[in-house]
Each structure stands twice: as C-alpha cells, then as structure tokens.
Simulated assay, not measured.
Amino acid sequence: MPNNSFPGWDMFVNGKSFDALQLATRTLWDVKTDDFDKHSPHSQKFFIKMKLGELQREKRLAEACGYDFIVGVRSEAHKTALNRADPTLKVAFMDWC
C-alpha cells in the first residue's frame, strides 16, 4: 500500500484490524485481493452481498474515530460492483498491485 505508515502491519482501530493506515490523510484501508473477475456473475453478486455489510461496518468504525475509509480492489469490475451496491463507499482500483 503506497504511503502506508506501518508497512507489514495491520492497524487495530476501534476494535477492528485494518490493512493499512495513511497517517498523513487519516485514511484506513481494507484491501480485497480476490480474483473477482474470474468468478461467474452469480458468484460475483453473492460475494458482494456477503462482504458489503462488513465493509459498511468498517467504514462506520473508521469514521467514528475520525478516519476516512477506502476499500482497495484489484479490478475495475470489483470497484464498479461495490459502487453499485453502496455508492457511499470509497473504492479504489489498485492498479499498482
């Protein structure tokens, strides 16, 4: 994660471990490294449905402590699916990994 203030470590904030913290922007990240594009459309919908509640919870926990929250994904299709499911989530396509 670029600009991760603690590379190689999870950040435990408000009872939850996050994948990265960028202190300069007060941003917590959850990174999804799934091969989303390789799954069938049915499996993709199921995956989004199963993960969405936890991502929304992580967003609330981060914001309650004054942090921004971003979900990092490895494909544009995954980003699009998450944005459709919840337009309030900030989702970043991680083209660097």
Rank of each mutant, 00 (worst) to 15 (best):
D35N: 08
K38S: 12
K32C: 02
L21V: 15
K32E: 00
K38Y: 09
T25W: 07
F36E: 00
K32I: 12
D37E: 15
A24E: 10
H42F: 09
K49T: 12
D35C: 12
Q22K: 10
D37Q: 15
K38R: 12
Q44T: 03
L28E: 08
D35F: 09
L21S: 03
H42A: 10
K32H: 04
L21Y: 13
T27I: 05
F36I: 15
Q44L: 05
Q22R: 15
K38E: 00
K51M: 07
D30Y: 04
D30I: 07
F36G: 03
W29R: 08
A24S: 05
H42T: 13
Q44Y: 00
P41I: 12
D34E: 10
S43H: 13
I48N: 00
H39Q: 14
F36M: 06
L28K: 04
W29T: 12
F46D: 12
T33I: 11
T25L: 09
M50C: 14
A24T: 15
T27G: 04
D37C: 13
L23R: 15
M50I: 10
T27R: 05
P41T: 10
S40C: 15
W29E: 12
D30T: 12
L23F: 05
F46W: 07
K49G: 00
A24F: 13
M50R: 14
F36R: 09
I48D: 00
M50D: 00
K51D: 00
F47M: 02
L28M: 06
S40Q: 13
P41V: 06
D34C: 12
I48Y: 00
V31E: 00
A24C: 14
Q44W: 01
L23W: 14
D30W: 05
F46I: 05
D30V: 09
F46H: 11
K32Q: 02
K49S: 03
F47P: 00
K49Y: 12
T27K: 06
K51H: 02
S43P: 00
K51R: 08
K32M: 02
L21C: 10
H39K: 04
L23T: 04
I48K: 08
V31N: 09
D34Q: 15
F46T: 10
F46Q: 04
